[in-house]
């Protein structure tokens, strides 16, 4: 079913339609990754994997990354393929819905940003800005499963 995973950050509860997001991404993953010529470089995992993030920083990094995808990535991924565009729209709107809840967590001080998460996110932004915007956006979208795996 449209599996919704409930993420608990302190007293904060963030429902994310993970099954719908994964289904949308799986449907376009090959198409998107074929548009990324530089497969040896990673935006989310360079130089450190997300899996090394301390649990206390998970909420902050999640909020940063959802904001990153909503603000910077999805808008530069429009393609000539309306099927792909529909799936990107589906993922983007799901991210927007989840990001809003994460924002509420931050307002309730349940999403504290430590030094590590701030540094980690700066590295991701540096990786992103090291490429031209379309390549960086397509690469980031192609790495969405890295984020989803880490979240789950």
């Amino acid at each position: 079913t449209a599996g919704v995973k409930i993420f608990h950050f302190g007293a904060c509860r963030v429902p994310v339609s993970m099954t719908e997001i994964r289904a949308g991404f799986t449907a376009i993953k090959a198409n998107i990754q074929s548009r990324d010529p530089i497969r040896t470089l990673s935006i989310l995992s360079h130089p450190h994997s997300l899996h090394k993030v301390k649990s206390s920083d998970r909420c902050c990094i999640t909020h940063h990354l959802f904001t990153f995808y909503v603000d910077k990535v999805f808008k530069h991924c429009r393609t000539e393929d309306s099927f792909v565009n529909r799936k990107i729209s589906s993922i983007a709107n799901s991210f927007l819905s989840a990001r809003r809840k994460l924002g509420q967590c931050r307002e309730q001080n349940n999403c504290v940003c430590g030094e590590e998460s701030t540094e980690r996110f700066k590295q991701i932004l540096a990786n992103y800005e090291g490429l031209n915007v379309t390549s960086a956006a397509m690469k980031s979208l192609g790495e969405l499963d890295i984020l989803l795996d880490w979240m789950e």
Binding site: V70, D71, F74, K75, R78, S82, F83, N85, R86, S89, A92, N93, F95, L96, S97
Partner: peptide, 17 residues
């Protein structure tokens, strides 16, 4: 047109499937 398209993608519209 989803909320994302209105707020982040210049109000773009997407053909239905």
């Amino acid at each position: 047109q989803g909320e994302y398209e209105r707020e982040y993608a210049n109000g773009s519209w997407i053909p239905t499937s």
